[in-house]
Computed example of a mutant assay.
Amino acid sequence: MDNKSISHTRWKCQYHIVFIPQYRKKVLYGKVREDVREILNTLCKYKNVEIIAGAVCVDHVHLSVAIPPKLSVSDFMGYLKGKSTLMLYDRHPELQSKWDKAAFWARGYYVETIGNITDEAVQKYIKEQAEESRKEDSRSTAL
Rank of each mutant, 00 (worst) to 15 (best):
T118L: 03
Y29H: 14
C13T: 14
V36I: 15
T85E: 06
E94K: 11
S7M: 03
Y109W: 04
P69V: 06
L40T: 10
K98Q: 05
E132M: 09
Y110P: 00
C13Y: 10
F104S: 00
I117N: 10
V18W: 14
H92G: 00
V58N: 12
R91D: 04
R24Q: 10
E34H: 10
H16A: 06
K70M: 07
G78S: 06
L88A: 02
H92T: 03
I39R: 05
I20M: 03
G108E: 02
V32F: 01
S133T: 11
Q123W: 12
A142P: 00
I51S: 06
S7I: 07
V65T: 11
A142D: 04
R91Y: 08
E120I: 11
L71Y: 10
K45F: 07
K101W: 07
K127D: 15
A102V: 03
C57Y: 14
N3M: 13
K135H: 11
R33A: 10
T9D: 04
Q123G: 00
N48P: 11
H16W: 09
R37D: 15
K12N: 14
K127C: 10
V56D: 07
K101C: 03
Y23K: 12
K101V: 09
L143M: 01
N48Q: 14
V65N: 09
A66N: 15
S72T: 15
L40Y: 13
Y125W: 14
G30Y: 14
K127R: 14
G54S: 15
S133I: 08
T85F: 02
Y125N: 09
R139E: 10
V32Y: 01
Q22A: 01
I117R: 13
I52P: 06
G108D: 03
F76D: 03
P68V: 00
D90W: 11
L71W: 12
M77W: 05
